[in-house]
């Protein structure tokens, strides 16, 4: 428990779960089952190197290059691997494309499966019970909560991620972006637009 006392003589005690994690780390390190340096590297990767910018590059290129889009449709796992974004958990990447007729949205009802190499660590709301339950039951209401209003003629398709298959939504390319290069296009692609709880932003 944190103290109120400001000139405590000893180091502040971390919360209980932090001590339990440290205990596991120490036990596994002493048994030679893990390499502590590898843990730091994994944290650094997820905090600094992997994030929605990766996915945005894939989307921007899919908007710009029809052959690339075809390749993504055929085997997204291989294509993003070529770009250096590969799933460390050996999962398959599948793209789902938004059109005027269909809006795609991704959830993981089991836990929080997510395309880490393309989007990083999921936001808290993606992992919440509320989103995991409601995305399937009332996707339109969830979208409305995110400020996404769809016309009556647009169907909503919800994709349930698993440990084996992770989905990336390719949002619709905004109007008025014809002359933009891939870098500029990538700047319009938000994290939420690739989960399907948002749209790409207009320039």
């Amino acid at each position: 428990m944190p103290h109120d006392d400001h000139d405590h003589p000893h180091t502040l005690l971390p919360p209980d779960p932090a001590l339990r994690v440290k205990a596991l780390e120490t036990i596994l390190t002493r048994k030679g089952l893990i390499d502590p340096a590898a843990l730091d590297e994994i944290i650094d990767t997820y905090e600094n190197k992997i994030g929605p910018k990766n996915g945005a590059r894939v989307v921007a290129r899919a908007w710009s290059d029809p052959e690339f889009l075809e390749a993504l449709r055929a085997d997204a796992t291989a294509v993003v691997k070529d770009m250096g974004f590969y799933g460390r958990q050996g999962e398959h990447m599948v793209i789902v494309e938004n059109t005027p007729d269909v809006h795609n949205m991704v959830v993981c009802t089991l836990c929080s499966c997510y395309p880490w190499p393309l989007l990083g660590i999921p936001p808290g709301w993606y992992k919440s019970d509320a989103y995991r339950a409601r995305a399937v039951r009332e996707p339109r209401k969830v979208l409305a909560d995110f400020g996404v209003g769809l016309g009556d003629n647009t169907a909503v398709r919800v994709w349930d991620s698993t440990a084996e298959v992770r989905y990336l939504v390719i949002p619709m390319r905004p109007d008025g972006t014809d002359g933009l290069d891939e870098d500029a296009l990538a700047g319009l692609v938000t994290r939420d637009s690739m989960i399907g709880t948002g749209l790409a932003v207009a320039p």
Binding site: P14, P15, P17, A18, V21, K22, L24, E25, L28, L33, I34, D35, A38, L39, D40, I42, I43, Y46, E47, G51, R88, Q89, G120, I121, P123, G124
Partner: peptide
């Protein structure tokens, strides 16, 4: 941008699990 991990131990337990998978 939102922090990737809210607490250091969240990052630690995540990394530990990913490492066990990778090895």
């Amino acid at each position: 941008p939102e922090p990737v991990f809210d607490q250091p131990w969240h990052a630690q337990v995540f990394a530990l699990t990913v490492h066990l998978n990778e090895s």
